[in-house]
Amino acid sequence: MAGSPMELSLITEVILKAMAKSLNLEDNCFLEQMGERSTMFARFNLYPPCPRPDLVLGLKPHADGSAITFVLQDKEVEGLRFLKGNQWIRVPVIPQALLINIGDQAEIMSNGIFKSPVHRVVTNSERERISVAVFSSPDSDKEIEPIGRLVNDSRPRPYKKVKNYVDTYFQYNQQGKRPIDAVRY
């Protein structure tokens, strides 16, 4: 993984600018909503071997509450799955690769154009799995909302303005609900 939070901040900036360009928007429109005090936090995950992986998940289905999530997967043991339609798709291990995931806050800012995918982690019966996830989120004092130029008659605004989405995320996630649904009209 990149060597410091500063490097990940630069990667976040590059990704958010590229997302804006792909939608023919001003380069900094997503960055402006992130604010000057955007936050990053890391979670280190250890999934020990589980004799009954058919009965035990390593991490329940969820979508990330961040804007962008960086995941450094275990270099040998798979476990990450994305939900596509009604089917769980395995994510292959690519050694030395950094997986970049869109979170709920980028979905809100993009007016639903970029989707925050539901994913989970499965356990392995024979081997432990280790991963690191770094979550990049807007400043908790900044309000985020869909970018105005992305709202029109064919794509109406589905999300309210929201401040400190991470609090909403943890509240609804604990209840087993999809947090992004709490900020829909």
Rank of each mutant, 00 (worst) to 15 (best):
F44V: 09
V71H: 05
I144C: 10
N101L: 14
N24L: 09
I102W: 01
N24D: 13
S38Q: 13
S116I: 03
S4P: 07
V132A: 11
A67S: 14
V118I: 15
P146K: 07
L25Q: 02
N173W: 13
P158F: 03
D181K: 12
G103D: 01
I89F: 11
S137K: 12
N173L: 15
R81N: 13
P156K: 01
V14A: 14
N152R: 03
L72F: 08
A18P: 00
G85A: 02
V166L: 15
D104Q: 07
I113M: 10
R155W: 07
F82H: 03
Q87K: 13
P5M: 11
S136C: 15
L98G: 01
N152G: 11
P51F: 12
P95C: 05
D141G: 11
C50F: 10
L55E: 14
Y47D: 04
G58N: 09
T39C: 12
F44Y: 14
R184D: 00
M40Y: 10
S110Q: 06
D54F: 09
P48K: 10
S110E: 07
L99P: 00
M19R: 08
K160D: 07
L59D: 00
N164V: 04
N111L: 09
Q105V: 04
K75H: 09
I108V: 13
Q105N: 05
G3A: 14
C50V: 09
D153C: 05
L59T: 08
G79E: 04
N45G: 08
T69L: 02
Y159I: 04
P5D: 08
L57S: 08
L46Q: 11
K84F: 03
V122M: 14
R157M: 09
T12H: 08
N24Q: 12
E107Y: 06
H62F: 08
Q105P: 05
T39H: 10
H62K: 05
V56P: 05
G65L: 03
E26V: 07
N86P: 00
N86Y: 06
E7P: 06
Y47G: 01
G3D: 13
I180F: 04
W88V: 02
L55M: 15
P158T: 00
T12Y: 08
P138R: 09
N152T: 00
S140P: 15
L25F: 06
D64T: 01
L25P: 01
Q171L: 15
K163H: 05
L16C: 10
G148K: 15
I11E: 12
I94E: 09
I11R: 11
K21M: 08
D64V: 02
A67L: 04
V122H: 10
D104T: 01
F70W: 07
A106H: 05
S136G: 04
P138A: 11
P5L: 13
A133E: 01
P158Q: 06
K160M: 10
L83C: 06
